[in-house]
């Protein structure tokens, strides 16, 4: 390779850093959505690089549904502490107090209250005019068309039909008061890129991504981890299964996969062999065709 050619990971890194600096230069009050997952870990590393030797010039915001894995919460608190970053945790406490959970409400409604509503409330409360998210365009069909700077109206809603054209790396950051931009610095990364970068950069991730014996319930073709007193269907019996999480969400709605990939090289190797997309194990995407697009229109990330 030409000595003055960037590898694809370094080219993606340069693009993401440019995006982050652009946001911090042009917006009054940015925030970074931090979901604790591998994409968030990469996004935070890129932010450290973008503003080195300074600290992150924005807080991290975690929307906590209270149904996250315990390992995630422990990781989150340690990670923010090590980083010296400001961490804001927001929960839709009213909905939790009223007993919101996916078994009672169904996954769509539960997500709407605990994630979408909670997120919109947190953004409004903080007066943030720009919010970074770790979504990638390769994750899901509706994301493939979303802009890097994705406009949201006063109600936090996305209109896929009237997106601003986005050319070169000239991002339009003009918003009125109350409107905002969701920014996706990892837009052009793939799942493989994220893993390869985590390995290259030795970035800490939640141990749930590594395989170990876990207590699981086999439900259809999903492996559901047993946490938060998940109600069992008749005939279901928990068993110890060598497994790991390929993407992280709430315990009820994140399926694991049977795997013995307990190191980073094994995970990457598994991914190369893999013929199934990562969100397959995310139950919310399968509610109905185009379900992610509907959620996004309402303000979901």
């Amino acid at each position: 390779m030409d000595s003055r050619t960037l590898s694809h990971l370094r080219a993606l890194e340069a693009e993401s850093i440019h995006i982050m600096r652009e946001v911090v230069a042009e917006f009054a009050k940015p925030v970074m959505l931090y979901s604790i997952g591998k994409d968030s870990s990469v996004m935070v590393r890129l932010a450290q690089k973008a503003f080195f030797p300074g600290k992150l010039p924005f807080p991290l915001l975690h929307v906590d549904t209270t149904y996250k894995f315990q390992e995630m919460i422990e990781f989150r608190d340690q990670f923010a502490k090590d980083l010296g970053a400001e961490l804001i945790v927001h929960t839709n406490q009213k909905a939790i107090d009223e007993g919101a959970n996916p078994f009672k409400l169904g996954t769509s409604k539960c997500c709407a209250l605990l994630k979408t509503r909670a997120l919109l409330d947190a953004l409004e409360a903080g007066g943030y005019d720009a919010a970074f998210g770790g979504a990638r365009r390769d994750e899901e069909k509706s994301r493939a068309k979303e802009r890097v700077f994705s406009f949201r109206d006063k109600f936090g809603q996305w209109d896929p039909k009237s997106q601003r054209p986005e050319l070169w790396s000239l991002y339009n950051s003009k918003v009125e008061k109350g409107e905002s931009i969701r920014v996706f610095p990892l837009s052009n990364w793939t799942e493989m890129d994220v893993w390869a970068y985590i390995e290259l950069e030795n970035i800490p991730i939640v141990p749930l991504y590594y395989a170990k014996e876990r207590e699981m319930v086999v439900r259809g073709n999903q492996l559901i981890p047993l946490e938060h007193n998940m109600p069992l269907a008749p005939g279901e019996k928990p068993q110890m299964i060598m497994s790991r999480m390929r993407s992280l969400g709430c315990t009820f709605c994140t399926g694991g996969i049977a795997s013995d990939a307990d190191t980073m090289p094994k995970i990457i190797n598994e991914l190369v062999q893999f013929r199934r997309s990562e969100r397959e194990n995310r139950i919310i995407d399968h509610d109905q065709e185009g379900s992610m697009e509907l959620k996004k229109r309402e303000g979901y990330f």
């Binding site: 365009r137 390769d138 069909k141 509706s142 493939a144 068309k145 896929p160 039909k161 997106q163 837009s187 052009n188 793939t190 065709e289 185009g290 697009e293």
Partner: peptide
């Protein structure tokens, strides 16, 4: 990609693929 486009049977915006 998007619902509305699938209904019309044509792509109407820029989609990125990897």
């Amino acid at each position: 990609g998007l619902r509305a486009e699938r209904e019309q049977g044509i792509t109407i915006d820029v989609a990125y693929r990897y």
